[in-house]
Every structure is written in structure tokens, then in C-alpha cells.
Amino acid sequence: MNNQSVIDKTDEQEKKGLSFKFDLQAYTLIIALVLIALLFGIMTGGEFLSSRNLSNLSAQMAVISVISIGMTFIIVAGHIDLSVGSLVGLTGGIAAILQVWHGWSTFAVIVAAVAIGALFGVWQGWWVAYRAVPAFIVTLGGMLIFRGILIGLSKGQTIAPLNDSFKYIGNSYLPHVIGYGLAFLSVALLIFGTIRNRANRDSMGLMIQSWVIDYGKVSVYSLFILLATYMLNRYYGIPTPILIVVFLAIIFVFISNKTSFGRYIYAIGGNAEAAALSGINIKRNTLWVFIIMGGLAGLAGVLLTSRLNAATVNAGNMYELDAIAACVIGGTSLMGGRGKIIGTLIGALIMASIDNGMSMMNVETFWQYIVKGLILILAVWIDIANKK
């Protein structure tokens, strides 16, 4: 009896240790982000943490965040997409051409850009899923094809200006009252969700974390939401592109965690052979992953063109590497089968912060490329080391 008590106590201590280790890993990204913000804040005399710069940073990271969400699904499924930067440029360019040269309405232009991106996703997904061509090769070819189509359609010209309604998408802000209202609503939903989750776990006899941990998390998240809202409202308000990113994040977190499609993607990336033996249609689900990526690239193209109020042949250049880096930094494994949308968004924010901070310090462009490349290599190395 005493031995059993010792075993039970040891198991409980091990579970607590594992839980602490998991929490430490989960919050490493947030700690890194805080340190980066403090470092650049000190080196720029506090300008990096000003409301004006935080607002600009939020708008800048929106495009990368949108394509990073799709890239997370691609990588979790065990593939890669090197064409998203060119596809962002192409869809954004098509949107500008349709509106500036052909007079299409803003709504029609947005629908067309997203639909065209999804169609190109069908094309690439078909090669990968049904013709077994490696995604690396298909999307590498797509990167060149999409950039070439953009140059041909635009005749190498910068296409501008766009309608005011189109510019509004990437350059508008929420009124302060609505911003605070959404912030308090988010806090209320966090509290309600935590209470309900604890009650459900208790009713099913599952282990419940200490209330200090659960409500401590809610307090930290709530403080961050309210502080971010306050800082953004000190400038013009919450940028509309960030609301779009949050809305997409909620949708795709739900898809990845609460739907059979989301679980299939993780199963395929973790062990494709086992997934096939369990009856999962690998080809169809792989095709859908590329369709989602294409549609999100189309939306990102709209956001980028709207923010710049112009479409250029270089739009979206190298964005695929920023998206991949955001995913890997956020904990998505290049081996497949592991990754979270929230981690990816934090990774995107880290990449955008590094870009923004170095630009404010007038660091030369070549150093920015070197630093970002080193960060990507380091993140992949950490992923491989954790896997081993």
C-alpha cells in the first residue's frame, strides 16, 4: 500500500514536471518577443514602442500573418510552398488591373483575387496530390510561373491609384469606442470560456489544472489585450488588417482543433502510411490544403495592394521565406505533423518586429537579410534537436 502511494505520488510529480516543461516551451516565444521589444525599444530611444510604430508594425505584419496561417497547414501536412510570395504579387496585381484598367468594383475585385488564388492552389495541389510531384518542385516552378504571369499582365508597370474603398481595406482603423468594446468583449469571452472548460472537465472526471494557473493565464491575456488596445488607440485605433488576421486565426484554430479535416492534416503529416491505412483520403485532403493556401495568398495580395495603393512586379518578393520562418519560429515542425496557428502568428510578429526594429536603427538591407537567414537556420536546428 505504501509502495503504491509512493508510485502515485511520483507519477503526480512527473505529470506536474511535464506540465511545467510544456508551459515553459509554450511561453518561450512570448518571452523572446518581449525581450526583442525591450531591446529595440532601448536602442531606438523608446520609439519602437511608441503607439505610432506599434500601429504601423501591426499593419505590416498582417500580410505575412495571413499567408503564414496557410503555410502552417502546408507544413503540418508534410509539404512546403515556395510560390506564395509570387502568388501574393500576382493576385494583388490582378486585383489592381481589374479595378484600375477595367473599372471593377472593390467587392468584385476581392472575390476575383481570392478565387484566382484558390484556382492556382488547385493546380499546384493536383500536381502534388494526384501526380506525386514533390511540392518543393511544383511550388518552385509556380514561383517562377506566377512572377512571369504578373510581369506579362502588367507589362512591367506600376498600377495605381486604386479606389478609396479598396484603399480602406489596408489603411483604415476602428473607432476608439468600438476598439475598446471588442477588447472588453474578448476578455469576457476568455473568462467565460475558462469557466466553462473547467466545468466540463470536472463533469467528465478529467484532470483540472490549478485555478491559479488557469485564471493567471486569463489575467495575462486580458492585460495584453487591453494594453495593446490602449496603445493602438493612442494613435488612430486598431488597424483593420489586424482584425482580418484575428478573424482568420479564430476560424483556422477551430478548423485545426475541432474538425475532422484538421485532425486528418496532422495525421497525414505525422505518418502518411498510418493515415492511409486508417482510411484517410490523403490526396483529397492534400489538394484542399493547397486550395486554402492559394485562397489566403489571394487575400494577402489584396491586403498588400491596398496598403501600398499600387501593384508592382516586385510585390510579395521573398514573402514565402518570411512565412516559412514565422511557422518554424512558432513551433511548426518541418518534419510535418506538428504546429499551431497561434505560435505561427507570434512567429510572424517576431519576424516583423526584427524587420521593423532594424529598419528604425537604419541597419543596412544586406544585414537584415543575413540576420533573418540566421534566425531561420537556428529555428530549424532547434526543431531538429527537439525532434531527436
Rank of each mutant, 00 (worst) to 15 (best):
G295R: 03
G179Q: 05
A37M: 11
I137C: 10
S260H: 07
K9V: 04
I370S: 10
I169S: 06
N163T: 12
A96Y: 03
I7K: 14
A160N: 08
L206G: 10
I195W: 00
G216E: 02
F107Q: 08
D202I: 08
Q60S: 13
I64D: 07
N281S: 14
L29R: 02
I244P: 09
S353I: 02
M293F: 00
A32Q: 01
G279N: 06
N362M: 14
S154C: 07
R338V: 14
R147Y: 02
L33T: 06
S172E: 06
F247G: 15
L189K: 02
S256N: 11
N3K: 11
L345D: 06
I75S: 06
V6M: 10
Y27H: 12
V122S: 06
S186F: 11
G152D: 09
F20I: 12
I116T: 08
P239Y: 05
L33C: 09
T240H: 03
L303K: 07
S210F: 01
P161K: 05
I346V: 15
A228R: 00
I346A: 03
T139C: 10
S278I: 10
G301D: 04
V177G: 04
R234P: 01
I268T: 05
G237C: 09
A62G: 09
R52F: 12
H102W: 13
Q99C: 10
G331I: 07
R131N: 14
V380N: 02
M71K: 03
S222T: 09
V245Q: 06
R131S: 12
Q4R: 14
F146K: 04
D23R: 13
T365M: 08
D8A: 15
N309G: 07
N197M: 12
W127V: 02
M335N: 04
Q209R: 11
Y230A: 15
M204I: 04
I159G: 03
A112R: 04
S222H: 05
R147I: 07
G103T: 09
Q25L: 14
F366L: 11
R52V: 14
Y235L: 05
G156S: 11
M43L: 14
V313T: 15
G269C: 12
P161H: 02
M61G: 05
S256V: 08
Y215R: 10
E364W: 01
G336N: 06
Q60T: 10
N257S: 14
S5M: 15
I282K: 11
K21I: 12
I67H: 03
F73P: 04
N3A: 14
L296C: 11
S306G: 10
L345C: 07
R147E: 08
V122K: 03
D11C: 12
M1K: 12
Y369A: 13
I64V: 15
K340M: 07
R263W: 00
W104T: 15
A135K: 03
E320G: 09
S219L: 15
L174V: 08
V371G: 05
I342F: 04
K372Y: 02
S222W: 01
N386R: 15
P241Q: 10
L226D: 11
A183P: 06
F184V: 15
Y235W: 12
L144P: 01
E364I: 13
A325L: 13
I159A: 02
A188G: 12
D202K: 14
T44G: 07
